[in-house]
Design a binder for these strands. Structure first.
Lengths: 118, 118
DNA sequence: GACATAATTTGATATTCTTCGAACTATGGA
DNA sequence: TCCATAGTTCGAAGAATATCAAATTATGTC
């Protein structure tokens, strides 16, 4: 992944509504969620929702499939995986440098260990 | 981390210049890089650079320390770690679901494993 | 103090993004 | 065919961003 592409993905997720949509779809898994259900759950009006769904779809983070009258959206995990791989490239030597476990000394240990992410 | 905060961080990184700055600082490590050196390396004019540095600093991804006439900027790894932890929360059960190792079947394996990220 | 360098701030401009009402398309049922 | 539902597209308005020249602040040197 190139930096321009990564920036596009990050910008797509860098909006509260779109991030909420994406997270909802990740939690929903393979079954996905149809547009109006997303709109209800997140209190986003149809036109605005379509705008954000189109944005997320354009950059490849989600995809939609028509199912009768509904369009069922689901997260495209591979794109997110690639983005995370890009952000963690050249750090951690393949070891997980995340998540922060809540152990108070984790950060300090990590500080002296392999270089963290991005 | 809350979703609004995460969206702010993602938006901050969702600009080619700022992402390039952040990556440069991550690569530079603890020593950091002073502003004019960043500007030269990335071909960004001083005023524009200051604008982006201030943005990254405001959201906590970098910090600057004056060193004589220079201001040395360095990445704040903890903020990035928290962001990545947020993005990978409730997935992977603490196992690394990244990075993509380049092994062709990794993605498929992961698909049937713990739910990927975000 | 006068000057040069490093960086920021200000102000103006151009661009992009976001939102939403209204119109439109697509599908299914009576 | 007519109607209702699901969703998108269009168009306009307002808000937020990005860029950069010019002015300003801060530091160090002569």
């Amino acid at each position: 992944m190139e930096i321009l592409n990564a920036a596009e993905l990050l910008a797509a997720l860098g909006h509260e509504s779109r991030l909420a949509i994406f997270r909802l779809l990740v939690q929903a898994g393979a079954e996905g969620v149809n547009a109006s259900a997303i709109g209800e759950k997140l209190a986003i009006q149809p036109a605005t929702l379509s705008f954000h769904l189109a944005h997320l779809n354009r950059v490849g983070l989600i995809r939609g499939e028509r199912e009768s009258r509904f369009i069922r959206y689901s997260a495209d995990y591979t794109t997110m995986d690639e983005l995370l791989a890009f952000l963690t490239h050249n750090c951690c030597q393949g070891q997980p440098c995340l998540p922060a476990t809540g152990m108070s000394d984790t950060i300090e240990k990590r500080r002296s260990g392999p270089k963290p992410c991005a």
